[in-house]
Design a binder for these strands. Structure first.
Lengths: 149, 149
DNA sequence: GTTATTTTAATTGTGCACAATTAAATAGTA
DNA sequence: TACTATTTAATTGTGCACAATTAAAATAAC
């Protein structure tokens, strides 16, 4: 590729990531409207449905988010009754995030979302698995490079 | 894939996109520190270095952003002297975004950024082109599905 | 056993991102 | 021509996202 082409928006892999992520997130909106949650909140629930309670730190580790993002978001989710926040007994520094009954019940309502979303993607399973694999390698690489900053 | 696995964070393609995008964006931060701009502002400059002036609408079309995001961002960029904003003579609805001398000069300083960033990615050229192609197909698909909402 | 260090969340401040609304300019139409 | 519809930015309000700082609790060092 010629040097000046590398400066073109359409040739930049990170711009494709950036734009695609946002457009895909928009596709979630109507699917999440029923639950009245945002996409990042949906990710929190996915993490908790898999394993709960989780400390803010553990949750952040899974979602690649820090307390500056999570704390206010979790407070909003607590306010609408999806989760509960409480200090750990063994380690008072930790705030544990658990699911309420409403939060647990939401899993059933959300069960169809992954399939509904995939219907919007014109890609076969191999292609998706390939993409998934590439992205995870990229993510790990970026996380390693980034932690030294 | 089993049904419950689809609910796992690590199997969701959109979560990989979401997390990878943010981690990659963090890698840009030190590269953009010299220019004192953010990643979205860098994207605006890339668009303008390719072609300027552009209306807010055209810029939004290239970056997949609307005026709600662009207007305040462009005002910040105008304030620090990278761009200029002015109404089009032919169509007073349009606000044109042009580069100042400082904005044009920044292109030279930024010329090394694409290569510096690629050094952080442990992927060969084929792999990157393949990823780029897949993402662009996904982006177009999502944009089409999304515009009917 | 006190002191220093580390870990954990919360807080503060800035900057996107986007839905919904508003207002002005233009284009289209009877 | 007047009247409607469309296009374009700006505005308003909410919710991430993240760097940097702060404060409390736990651990390590001595």
């Amino acid at each position: 590729m010629m040097a000046e082409d590398k400066m073109k928006l359409e040739n930049q892999i990170c711009f494709s990531l950036y734009a695609t992520t946002r457009e895909m997130t928009k596709l979630y909106r109507p699917l999440l409207a029923d639950l009245d949650i945002t996409y990042p909140q949906y990710l929190v629930l996915l993490a908790l449905w898999d394993s709960s309670p989780l400390s803010v730190k553990e949750l952040g580790g899974r979602l690649y988010l820090d307390s500056g993002t999570l704390t206010p978001m979790l407070k909003r989710m607590e306010k609408v009754g999806l989760i509960e926040r409480y200090r750990s007994r063994e380690d008072e520094r930790k705030v544990l995030i658990g699911l309420t009954k409403e939060g647990r019940d939401a899993e059933h309502k959300a069960a169809c979302i992954p399939d509904l979303l995939l219907e919007n993607i014109d890609m076969n399973e191999d292609e998706i698995l390939q993409l998934q694999h590439t992205l995870q390698r990229m993510l790990e690489g970026a996380r390693e490079k980034g932690e030294g900053l």
